[in-house]
């Protein structure tokens, strides 16, 4: 442990906190599995052209529905495309969904929640009522409705998922804001004449960020499953995009004789969503103060 001696002094606070969290997560086999799978997902998406053995779109009608082996790790689909390569490129789609949803949902949830919590009064009542209305639907059903209205495509699926997954974040940000709204440093900022907008952006939102980040991680499993579900129903990514849910939908017709068409993308979805669930579970433990003290 040579680096332990000097690192706490050199690293900035948040970085060493991050290091502690990672150390904690790696100690538990389940969250370590989660981290590993997510790392593999990211690497696969970045290095897709080098990892894939074939072009994911090139059809070869002389070589359809080949079982795994024979130069095709996971076999070929009904158009003779290499399933392994399609899965590898599919990682990019999954990552794109995760990234775009987070980028949209995080800020919306933060701003709505922080504003409601800080301003209070009728603003709070109105914003929270809107949040409740969105929460009154199961997310998949509401996403279905949005996609039905917008027309099926990957981007519309992402928009629909984002539109349905901000309310829990807003709820969380509001609860967080309420706890330190009365804090002295907020009062100090107000006395200095800072506008509410400035206080929300500069003082409140940064304080909400960590818990919102955890919550987003926890939500990712649901986001992935919803996206795959939309893909399966033909409302998400359209063929020939190698989206995993859509791959299952097209593979369904050949399932009885060629199980690998369905099995491989399903396992991929299962692994990634399980990984996010396990990681989220571990993060919750890691950031629960009672758990931290026990060590």
């Amino acid at each position: 442990m040579t680096d332990a001696a000097y690192s706490p002094a050199r690293l900035p606070g948040w970085l060493s906190a991050l290091r502690n969290i990672f150390a904690y997560l790696l100690r538990s086999p389940t969250s370590a599995f989660g981290l590993a799978v997510i790392a593999i997902l990211v690497l696969t998406a970045i290095l897709a052209p080098w990892i894939a053995t074939h072009d994911p779109f090139t059809q070869n009608l002389d070589n359809v529905l080949q079982p795994p082996g024979n130069g095709h790790l996971f076999g070929t689909d009904e158009l003779g495309r290499d399933i392994f390569s399609r899965l590898v490129y599919g990682a990019r789609i999954t990552l794109r969904i995760i990234f775009l949803v987070s980028v949209v949902v995080g800020p919306i949830g933060l701003i709505v929640g922080a504003t409601a919590g800080y301003v209070g009064g009728w603003m709070d009542a109105v914003l929270m009522r809107v949040t409740d209305i969105f929460l009154a639907f199961p997310s998949l059903i509401l996403s279905l409705a949005f996609v039905a209205a917008l027309g099926p495509s990957l981007n519309n699926a992402i928009i629909a998922i984002a539109l349905t997954s901000w309310p829990p974040i807003a709820r969380l940000a509001r609860a967080e804001t309420m706890t330190f709204r009365k804090a002295d440093y907020i009062a100090a900022a107000r006395l200095q004449g800072a506008s509410p907008m400035r206080i929300i952006l500069k003082s409140i939102i940064p304080m909400c960020l960590p818990s919102v980040a955890i919550r987003l991680t926890l939500n990712m499993a649901t986001v992935i499953l919803t996206a795959a579900g939309l893909g399966f129903l033909g409302l998400g990514a359209q063929p020939p995009e190698p989206e995993w849910g859509a791959m299952i939908a097209t593979g369904r017709r050949y399932m009885i004789d060629s199980w690998w068409l369905v099995a491989c993308p399903g396992v991929a979805i299962l692994c990634v969503s399980l990984a996010f669930n396990l990681l989220g579970d571990g993060l919750r433990d890691a950031l629960d103060p009672k758990q931290m003290n026990r060590r």
Partner: peptide, 28 residues
């Protein structure tokens, strides 16, 4: 830990896929 993994597994499976696989195994 076993219960946690078991239940997270149920929470993580794409149910349309598990349904197809289950049909394949238990029915076909």
């Amino acid at each position: 830990h076993a219960v946690r993994v078991f239940s997270l597994f149920g929470h993580s499976m794409p149910i349309f896929w598990t349904g197809m696989i289950a049909l394949l195994i238990f029915y076909a």
